[in-house]
Design a binder for these strands. Structure first.
Lengths: 277, 277
DNA sequence: TAACAGATGGAATGAATATTCTAATCTCAC
DNA sequence: GTGAGATTAGAATATTCATTCCATCTGTTA
């Protein structure tokens, strides 16, 4: 333990908690995790409330405050409250100022400016996504997936992260998934077992990965129902697809954030799970 | 006086006070002016404190709350507190409301509703991201990556898509990248060549993938400069990291859209490339 | 296995707080 | 100037709250 942690900023407190986390006892670690995750609850709640929400007895909360060098819960709470007070005023002004200053060229090369550029690009990509995807397509896609025995996923190159993510979520939800990654040989062999009882989700954006363009029509020809996620109706995975999600305005490969397709596949997977009940 | 002013937003309360101001008695008018000028004091203070600062007896404060239709000071204070909460966490309010209203309803289970939910979650995640990431950290991370001979990427389980995407972009930009995927054997062996001349980008969210937690400290001990992207300062990849990006409010694994980390790594990669000129 | 040190949970305690009550004061019409 | 009604201040009260204390439990070392 150390001297009185009197005047301390919220960020300093976070650092102190993180630093000491390992040295704390089990219960106290649990509390540390809770207060870092729910600072607002700590700022506004009573000891009893915080205790209940974090699943510990009230006395443990007080012991936690003591362990951090505070005289008690109330003293620690002041630090959490300071965060709330600081958060109210400057948010709008500073954000606008930041945006403006970064649009300029020289500053635009600084990492912070690059981040805010991507963030705002992603924001508009999401807006576009929710406008361009219609319920009809979503319903159709969900129906296909619901009927599928195995779900095959095809997304190579720059789209691979999307395919992996979808595979991860679907498997978590108990679906049988075959991720076509071409590992250890031919991607054709991996897809050989696919039949019309299965389903294929294909993801591809310009420049369309050659293997994707080659494999897709084969599976379509074998009667596998397919859901395509792509950026143009002229892409090689549109013809023969049962459902097509067109995500427009995808930037060039190196600048892609994949935000929109990630969101879409997530919604497909969870929507499938909810509809199955 | 009127019926119970139960659930009321701060803005509505302001309107109600302004409207009733003339009809109030002298003392209550004085209090009305004070609370509109010092909403933070009302949100965080006790009756005695507010009374002293506004120069009235405590009982007058309670009468004021009654005059506005509240059951007492505590009830009125909730409205002032909601203003603080809304200011600091734009995501919280909308997300909670949405979750509650939609989770149960039949409409919420339709695929289209699911998509719009994920879109709005992603939106707020992006806002939070741009608020919580500071230029200092971005600059430091960029400097580390710029100096690195090889860039090692560690992101397993649910974070794997982020690691893959970063690998893809960095390679497109001509960087030497080693993606630690554990393919065909030990992930330890893959990372064996990493030295202090290289760099590591580690990505991990709850529940932290065991292999990540195990490998990270080894690389740190070998002096490899590390950039961590995680959801808590208590995660196993924080201690010893050169730079930590904390992305808060990550939902549970199956509901994650990975939008924020995808955006961040993208900005890191491109920022690195632009700074190199 | 025994004994110890540290940690824990829950009840007891005392302080702080919101609220209510009542006597005093003020306001205004007549 | 006087009286009725509304308003107020401050003391009294009841409630909520943080804190402390102690018996119990847990994990460790001998």
């Amino acid at each position: 333990m150390n001297k009185t942690a009197g005047a301390m900023s919220y960020d300093e407190l976070r650092g102190a908690i993180a630093q000491r986390h390992r040295a704390l006892s089990g219960r106290l670690q649990q509390i540390a995790e809770f207060v870092l995750d729910h600072p607002t609850d700590v700022a506004l709640g009573t000891v009893a409330e915080v205790a209940q929400r974090s699943g510990v007895p009230p006395s443990a909360i007080v012991r936690f405050a003591h362990a951090l060098g505070f005289g008690g819960f109330t003293e620690m709470q002041q630090v959490f409250r300071s965060r709330l007070v600081a958060g109210v005023a400057p948010s709008y002004k500073s954000r606008l100022a930041r945006m403006k200053s970064q649009e300029k060229s020289v500053l635009g090369r600084q990492p912070a400016a690059v981040l805010s550029r991507f963030v705002s690009e992603a924001q508009s990509a999401l807006v576009t996504l929710s406008q361009s995807v219609h319920a009809r397509e979503l319903d159709a896609a969900t129906a296909i997936l619901a009927k599928a025995r195995d779900i095959y996923l095809l997304g190579l190159g720059g789209s691979f992260p999307v395919a992996i993510h979808l595979a991860y979520v679907l498997r978590k939800l108990g679906r049988r998934v075959v991720l076509l990654d071409g590992l250890g040989g031919s991607i054709h062999e991996q897809s050989h077992a696919a039949t019309s009882d299965d389903a294929l989700v294909a993801i591809s954006f310009r420049n369309y990965y050659p293997d994707t363009a080659r494999l897709f029509p084969e599976l379509v020809a074998r009667g596998v129902p397919t859901i395509s996620i792509t950026d143009s109706l002229l892409s090689p995975i549109v013809e023969g697809a049962s459902v097509v999600f067109e995500i427009q305005d995808m930037p060039e490969p190196a600048l892609r954030t994949l935000v929109a397709p990630m969101c879409l596949v997530q919604a497909l997977a969870i929507g499938l799970d909810l509809a199955a009940d």
